[in-house]
Design a protein around this nucleic acid. Structure first.
Lengths: 206, 206
DNA sequence: CACAAACTAAACTGCTTAGTTTAGTTTGTG
DNA sequence: CACAAACTAAACTAAGCAGTTTAGTTTGTG
């Protein structure tokens, strides 16, 4: 339903989005000026306003692009074909944790949270394209493990929600507010605790 | 090590901090002007600059005051004197969840996250006075439960971290980015899932 | 090469903001 | 009531910013 868009334009557009994303992640939305974005993108300010109606519109375009990326990234997230619950859960937790603390995902997370009260629809779009879709995929994996007798639990969605939540502890928060890491709460330790926790709670009794 | 401060001054100071906090929580740091704060506090702008060296300084004073409040609030957090693990864990989870989603705590959380990259020491101060101290208190409670044979686990801090993490799931995120609540992930359901999870994993075997 | 679309640098408008200054007023205290 | 500290309203400086305009340049295409 959209643009053929000449190759030259497309390249500029990408450069602008990349630059804007970098600026916003570094300095936040309000503290980033359109001139900065233009300079960083190697583009004139007039060009930015030829592509985007306003600074808000540019912000929206960035979030939407990230949503598309997330959708792609999720479908390529493959898991080991193991029949050991610990192996699978650990692999899931490692991938999730790596995602959560990656600078890009963390940066978007920070900025969406900060701007959510003023851009509720954007926050909604991001949340549904990212965390919600991700959890849906995890539900499929958990259901599959249940079917294979590797785990036993009642409500898949709530179980997955709790499992993912355990990964957002001290370690995650320290990255989020840029505190030095605490070795007692390393990513590995957090993952191990969560997996042990889950195995104890959901090991099949039968 | 500080100021006696006349009662008149102290009242104005409080009014300024209250107004500034409300403004920052509503609109974020960058989007709030000092004039707005002055108007809201019923105070002249000159008075603000008589009390605080800069807008940054004002921001810092707010975070510090919240830290003091948190420290007080935590020590008055009393728990039921029960010998049933479920009762105690549920009470803990309810209090934590109520705290997490309260507008004031949520507002500070959002703003600290958003501004953390630019105010790392403030974020650190806040984190240590709030979440970290809170978890320390929880560790005491968990240790006590272990001593009384109500729970069994290895590493207290990691266990508490995981338990608290489970409360920061879908429900919490929806509040954070102001999405309408999902009945399947109500606060009550989240608490129940987390408590069931913990009881299964940490019920004493002996 | 001619033409149109997309771009550029730079100046410009109009507005907002942090922070200061001034000149005068309120308020508690002796 | 006299005095000093704290306050006030309002004007002011200096800077930054979103967004526009202008006049001219690059670039792919027929």
């Amino acid at each position: 339903m959209e643009k053929p868009l000449s190759p030259r334009s497309a390249a500029k557009r990408t450069a602008m989005l990349d630059a804007a994303q970098a600026c916003f992640l570094e300095s936040g939305y309000a503290s980033t000026s359109v001139d900065e974005v233009a300079t960083r993108a190697g583009v004139s300010k007039a060009t930015i306003y030829a592509h985007f109606a306003s600074k808000d519109d540019l912000f929206g375009a960035i979030i939407c692009r990230r949503c598309d990326d997330q959708a792609e990234g999720l479908s390529s997230l493959s898991l080991p074909d193991s029949s050991d619950a610990r192996t699978i859960l650990t692999a899931i937790a490692q991938r999730l944790m790596a995602l959560f603390v990656s600078p890009e995902v963390m940066g978007i997370y920070r900025i969406v949270i900060a701007e959510a009260p003023r851009y509720p629809e954007l926050a909604k779009t991001w949340y549904e394209a990212g965390p919600l879709r991700g959890k849906q995929r995890l539900c499929d994996v958990f259901d599959d493990m249940k079917r294979r007798g590797l785990l036993d639990f009642d409500d898949t969605r709530r179980t997955v929600d709790a499992f993912v939540g355990m990964l957002r502890g001290e370690c995650f928060h320290r990255v989020m507010i840029e505190l030095p890491p605490n070795p007692h709460f390393s990513a590995e330790a957090t993952i191990e605790t969560a997996v042990n926790f889950a195995l104890k709670a959901f090991a099949p009794t039968a």
